[in-house]
Design a protein around this nucleic acid. Sequence first.
DNA 1: CCATACTTGACTATTGGGATCAACTTTCTA
DNA 2: TAGAAAGTTGATCCCAATAGTCAAGTATGG
Lengths: 141, 141
Amino acid sequence: MTISARVHYATLALIELAQRQSEKSPVAVREICQRHGIPAPFLVQILRTLRSAGWVQSIRGAQGGYRLAIAPTELNLLEIAEAVGCSDSNCQTDATDTPANRMVHEVWDAASEASRAVLARTTLAEIAARSAQGDEVMFYI
Amino acid sequence: MTISARVHYATLALIELAQRQSEKSPVAVREICQRHGIPAPFLVQILRTLRSAGWVQSIRGAQGGYRLAIAPTELNLLEIAEAVGCSDSNCQTDATDTPANRMVHEVWDAASEASRAVLARTTLAEIAARSAQGDEVMFYI
DNA sequence: CCATACTTGACTATTGGGATCAACTTTCTA
DNA sequence: TAGAAAGTTGATCCCAATAGTCAAGTATGG
């Protein structure tokens, strides 16, 4: 499970949308990009994926933008990573099928599973809340 | 921590050498390759790395080959992976340094650390022994 | 002396990730 | 009812890293 820039940006965008769920008007792509330093056309591409996953809703036209379309408690980082293309394709070789080969693959799988577990138990709600606290601290300093 | 073919091959080779540590003559590259289906020139390249790490010893000339130069209990899969170039460079972006960004990075780091822990606690001795058992089972079937 | 085997350095090729663009459609607002 | 603001789409490009290859050389046993 390699974490790509794609996944990182997707997560940042979702956090932003989660924190601003209560706002009346949707959040523009440009805003998200400016706040987080994400290349705009790239984020557009990523948001397409998030939309087809049903996690964000897009509103077209002037004053348009994006809005979270799911409860932040119902989305974890593993789901995000997998949706945005962090395939888990661990080590594809044409090595002979031997006991050693199987054994080693088991270890790789176990390692992969361990990191997936960490991602799976971290919800969008959690990190959104925790980074919002960070914002407040910054504000008061 | 992505597992590349390099790491996989390196591990297979080390297992082979570990299992044949007691033999008098060293093991030829060609033998390892045939047994495990590894492209020979590629394994040569990998063995170079393992040698400079001090884990294998090479014997040149006819009847030459490789021999394990370390106790299999003293080598774990994390060390192997790192030596052979599985850098942990998790997600390099030029995202703005915000609370959200830091928070997300913490999660990636935790996930990465979880998989590293699995690899770190698996020794070469362990998988060599376990896959040797597998060999026996195959033999008796 | 020659076959076997390791050594070294350079080299190629393919893939996937990161990023960009242009042309288009939709919708608000003045 | 324009036109500005936004999202939509599909194609395209670049680069770095990975996988894999090659050739010329050196050492050693028989």
